[in-house]
């Protein structure tokens, strides 16, 4: 039990340090790792009428082989925000776990939630703390989105490996297939899209990314593996049912095959 003057306050990472547990892996003074590390790939966030939508493919790769087919890259950060991850899978999952705990810990100790901007800044600090590891190849690039209850709007924040934090106005995509996904969204995005349109656009962007990028997984109808899609609105973080995502894929496949036939 900490005395009042030594109490680490509402920061969970500070609590961990205080009990002698360094929350972030410390970089070793050597070159890149002598082994293949697992990578997560394409993640997107799109603003729409009710708030924000986040989505991510399910594939993790290690070098040129597929390491995992059902990885979830979109996670709830707390009730009204979500975090998606691209990059080295190990440190990324750890970062998500710490980030979720950090927000919950603050909320419980202080009795109120952080502002959305405060949450985004917290994540920025965590990415920065990973810089040493990033220099050795363990890059983690999260995407943070949430519903700002004080302003009543959905907001999207992107990061670079040094912890730089940038707010996007309408949409963003990151990871190895991020460029292709971004182009697709750019062409299809309209202000105040409704929920089904936003889901379809996200799914289409992920399909295009998978089409161009070998590290991004496409829909797997045989194993019934579809991207993770979640919405964040005034009602909170909510996973979109797999059946609904499969249906959106059906629509995308139909329009794409039609285009194929015509060309």
């Amino acid at each position: 039990m900490f005395s009042p003057t030594e109490s680490p306050g509402p920061s969970f990472t500070d609590v961990l340090r205080k009990v002698g547990h360094e929350p972030f892996a410390v970089a070793q003074p050597s070159g890149p790792p002598p082994f293949e590390i697992r990578h997560g790939t394409t993640i997107v966030a799109i603003r729409y009428a009710d708030g924000v939508l986040m989505a991510g493919d399910r594939r993790a790769t290690a070098g040129s082989s597929i390491a995992h087919r059902t990885m979830d890259k979109v996670h709830p950060a707390d009730r009204h925000s979500g975090v998606a991850i691209a990059g080295a899978a190990g440190p990324a999952m750890e970062m998500v776990k710490l980030f979720q705990l950090q927000l919950e810990h603050y909320e419980k100790v202080e009795g109120s939630s952080l502002s959305l901007e405060g949450k985004a800044n917290q994540l920025s600090g965590m990415v920065r703390a990973n810089l040493g590891m990033a220099m050795q190849g363990f890059v983690v690039v999260p995407l943070f989105a949430g519903f700002d209850l004080r302003r009543g709007v959905g907001r999207i924040y992107t990061y670079d490996p040094t912890g730089g934090r940038y707010e996007e106005t309408d949409f963003h995509a990151d990871g190895s297939g991020g460029r292709d996904a971004r182009t697709t969204i750019k062409l299809g995005w309209k202000p105040d899209m409704d929920r089904p349109a936003a889901i379809e656009l996200a799914v289409r962007a992920l399909w295009q990314a998978a089409d161009e990028d070998s590290a991004t997984g496409g829909p797997d109808a045989i194993r019934k593996i579809y991207p993770t899609v979640a919405t964040i609105t005034a009602a909170g973080f909510e996973r979109v049912e797999e059946s609904e995502v499969a249906e959106a894929f059906g629509t995308v496949v139909a329009t794409l095959s039609e285009a194929e036939v015509q060309s």
Partner: peptide, 17 residues
């Protein structure tokens, strides 16, 4: 209140570890 804070810290550390 100090006991409460310590409890939150203890529980969160245990759940994390």
């Amino acid at each position: 209140d100090q006991l409460r804070r310590s409890g939150v810290q203890y529980a969160d550390i245990k759940g994390y570890q």
